[in-house]
Amino acid sequence: MTTPTAVAAARRQDLAPRKRWPYRKHAVGLLFLLPATALICLFTLVPFAQAILLSFQEWDGISPDTPWVGLENYERVFGDQVFWESMKNVLAFAVIGFFIGNAISLGMAMAVHKARRARSFFRTAYYIPGVFSVVVIGLMWGWLYEPSVGIINRLLVSIGLEGLQQNWLGDPALALGSVAVTFVWYHWGFGFILFLAGLQDIPAEQYEAASLDGARAWAKFRYVTWPHLVPVTTIVGLLSLLGALQIFGTVQVLTNGGPGYHTMVPTLVIYTEAFTSHRYGVAAAMSVIFGGALVLLALIQLGLTQRRSRS
């Protein structure tokens, strides 16, 4: 027989709020994220895991057999001078792309932001290089750099500077710099647009207040513009750094890594290993090492930027 006290307790239990699923209020958001997460898993994480697996195997790209070779591919990569030389070259591209490329993008964005006329024209003109195919860019700059009939050397002749004519892509001392110039030109539009958007978000009152306080141009940049641009600079810096480290098409079309190995970059070495030498296992090992280095670098840069933002 049920006692009245027990019945009352049971009723209280029924009336008490049910224990809710802790993520319920995020469920809709998670549902929206699901397709993107699934695609990232399918097209990024799974291939990356496959690449790691392949780096311990031998494969010519065609054969159904992929024998396990342990660390043999990694041993080969660690002894490959060309791969490590290419790492040095790509660091040079990264430094140039990160500092010079972003400085130019920021400078152009500030100039266009301040321009009173033809702002739309310059916005379009500066962004246009980035919309072309890398092959078109490579061929175009190849002709600009052509030593005997190229526009750059012809221009130098026409203004009486014959002595400055160079074999821009054939001279080892100039080849890397020449390719880097093309790369910066091709990619500056991306940083330019983001910096411009960032500049347009800065309230005009802050500049007016700074002017009333007697701030000159540099002080305004240092204490108003730059702090507001930190979030944009973080993302532009990270993406341009990763873009420079992954440079491929510009190098392949302009120099194919030459003369000698002076402009060789890891992505081109990996491509050659896989598609020319048919050593997919070695190429995968290179990709794992290079990809790991990129992830590490990205994490370091994000960490540094977050620390700077907090301070």
Binding site: G138, L139, P147, N167, L169, G170, Q252, V253, N256, P259
Partner: peptide, 18 residues
């Protein structure tokens, strides 16, 4: 010519063009 051997992915088409 130019004291160097042309390189790049289109090196021979470039030589033929010249």
């Amino acid at each position: 010519a130019n004291d160097a051997l042309p390189g790049g992915s289109d090196d021979n088409p470039t030589v033929e063009k010249s």
